[in-house]
Design a protein around this nucleic acid. Structure first.
Lengths: 124, 124
DNA sequence: TTCGGTAGGGATAAAAAGTTCCCTATACGC
DNA sequence: GCGTATAGGGAACTTTTTATCCCTACCGAA
């Protein structure tokens, strides 16, 4: 996607997980594909806050990382579909766990975050 | 820590999880604290690849997010200790799951990643 | 007194990630 | 022909994150 200039240490499992699932829209995209939204246009409708350009780029990188796989109907009505590879499938429980934990602590974190923002605003 | 200019949507559990556990060293720091490495100097020795400045900043932000809690022995030999809060504790299983999944797929991802890099190099 | 260990921060640079704008090309329906 | 939908990308930009450098201040030990 972008050219990396710094060597990435993928010895640590946590870094590997972050590399694939980290980022603002990654897990969201994977989750949507798993839920059956396979086409780029559908994904863009599913996640309207994400710029379509960004979704495209993530799709390309996830494909390069072999988390998803693309199938094109070359002819017509121009169709592209993305599917999870076994690697992608294997990430689903982890994504579900992240979502669950995040939702369980959402209110709390939102509160604390709001307080942080307020304090920042007061200090400036 | 840094002043954010863009509103962060914390409605989605995945985003909440990424906010707290995402980033290059976050999960690593939390995990180290959980393993009993409670003092800043110890953490810096534990994760020597991470600049100490970065560790400091993460500690401050994790504290602000109430994932960890600081105790200072004000007097002497200048001592600071960090402990997980209940929120921090609750993240441990998730971190463990990330680590486990990452380690299970490490070789595979490393391989694919190496191929990507090689291809990039060939194209430039 | 100088050195080492502790905890911490300011300033700035560099890298990465995300955003925006605008473009290609195809084919359908009106 | 015109508008709309499909899939996709180039270029430039902003925001966020990470890294580098160098500093304060404390006290003990040598």
């Amino acid at each position: 996607m972008y050219e990396k200039k710094i060597y990435e240490n993928l010895d640590c499992g946590i870094n590997v997980a972050n590399k694939i699932l980290g980022g603002k829209w990654r897990a969201c995209i994977i989750d949507s594909i798993a839920r059956g939204i396979r086409r780029p246009s559908g994904l863009q409708r599913e996640i309207p806050e994400a710029p379509s350009r960004v979704i495209q780029m993530h799709l390309r990188e996830l494909e390069a990382l072999q988390v998803i796989r693309k199938e094109t109907t070359g002819s017509f009505p121009l169709k592209a579909e993305y599917f999870l590879t076994p690697l992608g499938e294997s990430a689903l429980p982890l994504i579900a766990a992240m979502d669950q934990w995040g939702n369980a602590n959402k209110e709390y974190v939102q509160e604390v975050y709001a307080a942080m923002i307020a304090e920042d605003a007061a200090n400036s």
